[in-house]
Nucleic acid binder design. Sequence first.
RNA 1: GCGCCCGUAGCUCAGCGGAUAGAGCAAUUGACUACGGAUCAAUAGGCCGGGGGUUCAAAUCCCUCCGGGCGCACCA
Length: 553
Amino acid sequence: MNPADLSASLLAVVSGILARRGSTEKITINDVALERPRSREHGDWASNIAMKLAKPLGANPRELADEIAVDLATVDGVARVDVAGPGFINITLDAAAAGALAKVIVEQDADYGRGDLYAGVTMDLEFVSANPTGPLHIGGVRWAAVGDSLARIFQFEGGIVTREYYFNDHGAQIDRFARTLLANWAGEPTPEDGYGGDYIEDIVARVVEAYPGELEDIPTREEIQEVFRAVGVEFMFGDIKKSLQDFGVNFDVFFHENDVHESGAVEHAIDRLRELGAIYEKDGAVWFRSTDYGDDKDRVVIKSDGEYGYMSGDLAYYLNKRERGFERNLIMLGADHHGYVKRLMAMTAAFGDKPYYNLEILIGQLVNLLSNGVAQRMSKRAGTVVVLEDLVDAVGVDAGRYALVRSSIDSQIDIDLDLWSRKTSDNPVFYVQYAHARTRAVARNAEASGVDRAAFDASLLTHESESSLLGILAEFPRVVRQAAELREPHRIARYAEELAGAYHRWYDNCRVTPLGEEPITDLHRTRLWLNDAAGVVLRNALGLLGVSAPDRM
RNA sequence: GCGCCCGUAGCUCAGCGGAUAGAGCAAUUGACUACGGAUCAAUAGGCCGGGGGUUCAAAUCCCUCCGGGCGCACCA
């Protein structure tokens, strides 16, 4: 008996009552969704359907609840149904019905929790996309952790997911980067709009090293700068890729902005908008009439000097993604880019697509760094950069990823570097990982003392901590689905913590291996199933976060 | 001025229409001759930023004010 079965039973019961009352009120499976009560004394599952239906039926919610309760109590596997408060229906399953789940989970193993929310849907997730003008700073790292986790969640829900990095190797930022390298090489001061930071010197040295001849022999300054641009960007790009790989984030596509310009895709996109009547000319420039689609102001696509405006690249890139066949396109951006949302949605609508469906922009708040309790301002140009490697060096990949993915992206998060670099375990990731390691230790001990999974009798799982653990295990598929729908991976992390807590409590109360000379019984064997089920779900949850589930710590 | 996000326990943050608002850390107390004590049990700590409104029911939805962060170029 899982929540879906129970919902179906409840639906049948309520439909029967509606028919009996001669009501034309229509209800669906969504109306009878069960929730897990906060307090254990309210049973395993609760429904508020009676309160929802009371008004349209003109009925007293408590009486209606009583009526539902009587019928529901006859359902197989339901031990007790109580009506409480203003009309809550609290359902308690019998131990056998609730406990059967443990075996199901162990048998489904890595597939437990998998859903079909996005079955067969092509999805492109674009994230990080930092300019190759420096190492990955901490802000970009948040999206690496969150974006990769989201991709895993979508895949778990059946989505056909592409992880994509938009590599901006075209614009003025790259020119600034090249000029900075050139100036450093020539022993000149860093240009006013250039980049600071120790890595500049390093890159310069590597470019000099990599260049087959002598840079001094190149006749013009422009040509030398071009060498620094091409080779320097390549190095930077390689460094970023490697950092991400080491962080467990692997992109399927690295898309170069240059391609979009060189392939004629920009003209193609503008032509397309022109056909659709969304393009006009004014003051010698070419404009996209984005205000027709909800934007605050129209946007320049070709400047009066003939150069392409910034947005032209976005137009071409989006169209390119659609032409590559992606139904859903998600872009993750930092809060400093939230102003883009309207114009990108206007673009989506102008192309005849559905805003917030074919294109979604996820805006995440910035990460603050605290050092000695003082916020550090990050600036690439000033060189006060905290990069991915700093975080990994301080706390490791697992803790780093977990910490970044544990909070809602709507919240700014503070990362106290002093605290984190202490490597103490005041980070919940250890709590969760330890719970998993413990499930493995218990399984090892069970094997050593002769407890196996030859028997399974769910009716023996009667301890309070067992029904509590089972209730949480049952929720995993719903949590995954919700995390996918809301694009909120942090829900998985919070769930994992709750599960770890329930597991530790169960461990404290219920032994899998017998003590001393006690004989091995079916209770021990059945508990081994439950133990392993908890291990499976902890492992699956951590897997969705890109965090390892160690067997030993 | 306009726009987006946030204001919940000492700290970092969950909860986003339901029943007594939660977790981790920090504090106090207790449990190791019991499957790893990296654990567990207990105590203490909240006008859920302020004020209106909608609802049977609001931390959650709407309005407004206050406070904080980030944006509003023919820059990228």
